[in-house]
């Protein structure tokens, strides 16, 4: 039961975060500096999730060679092809290859 409550609270918090500015839209206007800052949101926020995945292992700054190698290779594929599926496919293939080689 308490697990259900936790999950419902997590859902409510997530919805509140997502609806925040959309819900208030039109009732105030954001200052120009704020609008300029928003351009950097996807890059900054998603990088904040990606780098620890590549460079942190079990709570310590210790790159897992297979994950770091696959991540860098996927970034190169993304840079050259701009193809999302190809990036994910190459990254997973590289991860499995590196894990197998480094086993």
């Amino acid at each position: 039961m308490s697990l259900w409550l936790t999950m419902l609270a997590a859902g409510a918090v997530t919805f509140a975060i997502r609806v925040s500015f959309i819900g208030l839209a039109g009732r105030f206007s954001a200052p120009p500096w704020f609008s300029r800052m928003l351009r950097f949101v996807p890059v900054a926020a998603l990088t904040a999730l990606v780098w620890p995945d590549l460079l942190v292992t079990a709570g310590a700054i210790a790159p897992d060679p297979a994950r770091l190698g696959a991540g860098v290779l996927a970034a190169l594929v993304a840079w050259h092809t701009r193809n999302i599926l190809l990036t994910i496919a190459c990254g997973m293939a590289a991860l499995w290859l590196f894990q197998w080689v480094l086993r």
């Binding site: 890059v43 590549l54 994950r67 970034a75 994910i88 990254g91």
Partner: peptide
């Protein structure tokens, strides 16, 4: 992780985008 990489990399257009990525990444780690 790979999905986020596929989203972020094409958004790296100006030096400012690279700065945002580098500082966010280093801070997160």
């Amino acid at each position: 992780t790979l999905t986020f990489i596929a989203i972020v990399v094409p958004l790296l257009r100006a030096r400012a985008d690279w700065a945002a990525m580098t500082v966010a990444g280093v801070t997160a780690v």
